[in-house]
């Protein structure tokens, strides 16, 4: 699965994207976050506060309970500040 990161999430993880093999037990966006948090201290810190994490599946906004089945790209980013 391709995961992309933006803004301070990208900076804290020091990567713009990565390819990961998600275990079968990971079914939702919330599960992905919990799984990522087990991968190291930088992930645990970056994803510490779920209130400031937004997600997208295939470039469409989704909530934490969204299923990831069929996803080709998952994105994580902070609340948007454009305009």
């Amino acid at each position: 699965m391709k995961i992309v990161y933006f803004a301070w999430l990208r900076e804290r993880l020091d990567k713009t994207e990565e390819d990961v093999d998600l275990p079968a037990s990971v079914e939702t966006i919330g599960d992905v976050i919990e799984w990522l948090k087990t991968r190291g201290e930088e992930y645990a810190l970056a994803f510490d506060n779920p209130k400031v994490i937004r997600a997208a599946i295939n470039k469409t906004h989704v909530r934490a309970e969204a299923k990831i089945a069929g996803a080709s790209e998952i994105a994580f980013f902070p609340p948007m500040t454009g305009g």
């Binding site: 803004a7 301070w8 997208a56 980013f77 948007m80 500040t81 454009g82």
Partner: peptide
Amino acid sequence: IMDYLKTSAPFWKKTEGGGKEIWVDANEKD
């Protein structure tokens, strides 16, 4: 269009000044 752009279009701002770079926080008013 502007109101929705502010809250749903994936853009992020970082300020640069005084030797520091700071990510701008999202605004509840938006």
